[in-house]
Simulated scan of single mutants.
Amino acid sequence: MRLSLAFGLCTFAFLAGCNPTTVSDSADFGRFEGDIVASWAENGRDMVLRDTFRYVDSANREWTAPAGSVVNGASIPAAFWSVIGGPFEGKYRNASVVHDVGCDEMRQSWKDVHKMFYEACRCGGVDDSQAKMMYYAVYHFGPRWEPMAETIVQSVDAGNGQTVLQEVASQRMARIDPPPPTAEEIQQVEAFVAEENPHPEAIRELDRYQLHRRSGHGDRRDRISSTSDRSRDFASRWDNQERAVRSYHRGSSRSGLQPATEDAVIAKVREHVEQQTGELRPAVYTVEPGRDAYRVSVQYVHEDEQGQVVADEGGLSTALVSGEGKLIEFVNGR
């Protein structure tokens, strides 16, 4: 890695290419082309690519991160950073760059983009067990997108030099992420990878429902089970408390909305969270009315060992609910 500092701008570049000493069983994990040359953005958190960078996967498919792309590791669930390291640390930096761009562009399926991330991690020298844990993290907790039909209003030529406004059916790619992982789920993923050394296909097949119900081994299983029991107890108490609070404030709303409207918007977002997790998930929901949709901030919480309610690490989602009550976006980390 080459690091230089000039005029307050931090630019870094590091050689790209698979290290053959890290690839087991002669597996082909593709190759990187070029160096990553980037500089810090003004916000001090993002990096801006100065040169185009590419990864070619095992099927000879090119994944390009064009010059000018903004990367920050947000495509990797932040709750896992304490386990695997930050996106600009260690051997998965190259993989995190092309993964960020793939998730931002949404041109390929989310399944293909996450599979590419796993191969790129292995290509970059990440060891097998850590790469598998990272693959589980992005595949089951990372960004997802799907086509969504919508109606837009646009100007249409009506002849004689006149234009009229007309409703037109359109389609866009919408981010509909699963909720971020809990601390218990991270422990469960670590146990799954350590105990079974799963094939990538097995990683894809073990969804979070099955992860919760998986039988672990020995002391690790007992610790996870005890933690999960405490979490479920807190979730039940939190849910009852929140229902009581909403009932008490039935005549008013912090967002300025009619209480019934605010409740309906929150219920739509909660429905997504609980469908994805298969259980109650304690969180604080804040609704902000917008021009075309309601913006809902979801801050997940848990109870620490001292019995205090604290925010989950990396536990923030933002949802958009249309005026018709449809969930049109759900994005983690912002």
Rank of each mutant, 00 (worst) to 15 (best):
A27P: 00
R61F: 11
Q188G: 02
S58P: 03
I203Y: 10
A79H: 03
H217K: 15
V126G: 03
D177L: 12
D177Y: 13
R45A: 05
Y118R: 02
F141G: 05
M106K: 11
T151W: 06
R281F: 09
I203C: 08
V37Q: 09
D304C: 08
R270E: 06
P198C: 06
E196N: 13
E146F: 10
V97L: 04
I203N: 10
W145L: 05
A174Q: 09
S129E: 12
H99V: 08
E288Y: 01
T21W: 08
E279V: 05
S297F: 10
A194D: 14
V83G: 03
G314C: 08
L320S: 04
A137R: 05
K268E: 07
M106I: 01
E105P: 00
A158V: 14
A13Q: 09
S247Q: 15
P178G: 12
R214Q: 13
P20M: 03
G142M: 08
I203L: 13
S24W: 00
A65V: 01
C121F: 02
D57T: 08
P143D: 08
R220P: 01
E271T: 01
V273G: 02
T11H: 03
V331T: 13
G256W: 09
D222T: 12
N72H: 10
Y118Q: 02
L15Y: 06
G323E: 04
V168H: 09
N240Q: 15
P181V: 07
F192Y: 13
W81K: 07
T64G: 00
V296I: 11
S228Q: 14
Q275A: 10
Q306M: 07
L9V: 12
W238P: 05
F88D: 12
A78L: 10
G125M: 03
E313F: 13
E185L: 08
E42P: 00
G251Q: 12
Y139T: 07
V331H: 05
L165D: 04
R172W: 01
E242K: 14
G159C: 11
R254S: 13
R243Q: 15
A235V: 13
C18E: 08
Q306Y: 09
S226N: 13
R254C: 00
S24D: 11
Y55G: 06
A65R: 05
Y136M: 06
